[in-house]
Design a protein around this nucleic acid. Structure first.
Lengths: 337, 337
DNA sequence: TCAGGAATTGGCAGCGCTGCCAAACTCTGC
DNA sequence: GCAGAGTTTGGCAGCGCTGCCAATTCCTGA
């Protein structure tokens, strides 16, 4: 198994002028043919196309977009790639964008607002057709940049607040409340919570707030909680529930900051012979596919991530009238509650 | 909750010339300050910086890169976003690229070679600094494009074959063989296989080939198999194992095309009271975190996806001498075999 | 004080493409 | 055969920036 060495031989790629010369036409004619716009006779069209093929011409969009002011790039800045939910979102967005000839520039903020601001500046320097951000919380500097740029902006994942331009998502607060009411409705009264590095994941905080609020309305409260210091993961959920139970406070149900965490809790119970849901009920958030096919499907809130990506993409392309779309969520009454 | 309307007011963003004028210096001086290269006196530096800040200047990289020929974009084309392994890879790559001031343009081929070719052309039109592709199998047209472009190319995930330029990955064939030898070593003899839409996932095919080869060396063979028609998922794995067992052929171990599938199989066994590993052993591929924290950690092959992303990024930036790096994999002797 | 060299600075020609406009065709119908 | 209207074509000025080179200013030390 050896690698070849003749790749990357000096190559200067052909320009539009090269194609035009080879086809014996003017630059603008060649341009018209290759972009498929403007009237061109069939005969010249064929000539130009042949020349382009022969030269393996790849248009230079740097030049094209500079000349026509405005690119077909769409920037997408997500908080993380470790949790499948953002790739799910990307998939939906990307599908629509690609179908409309747009390309995504993706950046990852790691849940840090300052980093997000830097990334926004970086992405804006490509003069994108639009920008998609997750959540409503951005630095003042970021907001100023966005406003000054005039780029179409779509914020996603969170409708608990006011967005800057367009917005598609769901209410995390309500999702938390729905989770709480579900548990209450099933008769659970001593409810615990296991969360992850919560100070950074603002939406998880909002869910918890909504959860607590609904408990309070029912005269209840979270009787024990355990907040991890790292990102969410199956491991963190498993550890979290273990520590929560070690507190010695009796609970009959546990709400987790998301499905990864909840699955960890579920695994902990399986390992330790804790009966689900009789001894302990488990509730997550996101409705991950993988948790739906556990022996007992995880009770959770299904968030339409890919659909949200599609809507966000359509919004960013200016194909949606509404400035605000609440895409909702769905209660999954699984077998763990 | 209402959306504001004053966003996207007509804004023409400031140009370098605007900044230069506002600072009372020449364009090239302003350019030097803002790029931080070239000697500039502290006094003018401050003036220019102040002007840029005041105007909320965001450089236009379309123009910048056009002028300097060559962008700081790196194209990454992956087969899919539904399986966490590619986001894992992206995360590693993205981290290194961002640290070096590069931006990733990401596209998804859905395992279709023709689509990959289109995406390559599309990405090349941005004159990226480099390109990362998954696997070694590309259309002739794609290869021609890549060769003609002279862009630095890194192929990843597969060393069972010869790459076009740079290459980092591991041998899927060997991974399959290691899995087989592990099962054989543990005494399993009647081995089944559950796979997914295998004609598209060439690397899964290679793993299976390696697996079968190692069985053959031991005088064994796969006694029953079930290949799904869709993409890999927990559900497909669960269904697959169910159908496999329904065939009525007795097996004592099952190899799955990856961990998602294997986890599905694991869940099936839990649901149906099949003792693992006594009645049935389960082996996956990828070493997903979430499967490591199941009651019985899934036996699997851990692939260093994020590390591979980092190496690929370094290669694409020209920071690696080697043209070929086998990054290996690790046998995870879990509790399911 | 002044030559000589270093440190700064500005001007301007492109990078490859698109958009506009005028020029050159082609076709009508009379 | 020709005006008039349509269809096709080519020329060229930018888009906003960088890279080069020349011009200017600022220091040296003698």
């Amino acid at each position: 198994m050896t690698q070849r060495d003749d790749f990357n031989a000096l190559t200067t790629s052909a320009t539009l002028a090269d194609v035009a010369r080879a086809a014996g036409v003017g630059e603008s004619t060649a341009s018209r043919v290759l972009r498929g716009k403007g009237a061109v006779s069939e005969r010249t069209r064929a000539k130009v196309q042949a020349a382009a093929d022969k030269l393996a011409y790849v248009p230079n969009r740097l030049a094209g977009n500079l000349a026509s002011t405005g690119s077909n790039l769409v920037g997408i800045i997500i908080p993380s790639l470790t949790n499948i939910v953002f790739p799910d979102f990307l998939r939906g967005a990307n599908q629509v964008l690609e179908a409309h000839g747009h390309q995504s520039v993706i950046a990852v903020s790691e849940y840090e607002a300052e980093r997000e601001e830097r990334l926004i500046a970086s992405v804006l320097s490509w003069r994108p057709a639009g920008l998609i951000l997750v959540g409503l919380d951005h630095t003042e500097g970021a907001k100023a940049l966005l406003r000054a740029s005039g780029t179409r902006l779509v914020e996603v994942y969170d409708t608990d607040g006011v967005g800057l331009d367009r917005l598609v998502g769901f209410s995390n607060r309500q999702a938390g409340a729905v989770a709480a009411r579900h548990l209450i409705g099933r008769g659970y009264r001593r409810i615990g919570y296991v969360g992850h590095r919560i100070h950074l994941d603002i939406r998880a905080v909002k869910r918890f707030e909504g959860f607590e609020g609904a408990l309070r309305e029912a005269g209840l409260s979270v009787v024990a909680q355990e907040i991890g210091t790292g990102t969410s993961s199956v491991e963190a959920g498993r550890e979290g529930l273990k520590r929560l139970l070690a507190q010695g406070i009796e609970i009959d149900a546990c709400y987790f900051s998301n499905d990864d965490m909840a699955l960890g809790g579920y695994f902990h119970c399986l390992s330790h012979g804790i009966q689900i849901p009789n001894q302990l009920a488990i509730f997550g958030h996101n409705g991950l596919d993988l948790a739906r096919f556990a022996p007992q499907p995880l009770s959770s809130i299904r968030t339409p991530r890919a659909a949200m990506g599609e809507v966000a993409a359509r919004m960013v392309l200016g194909q949606e009238q509404a400035k605000l779309i609440d895409i909702g969520f769905e209660l999954l009454e699984g077998g763990t509650t």
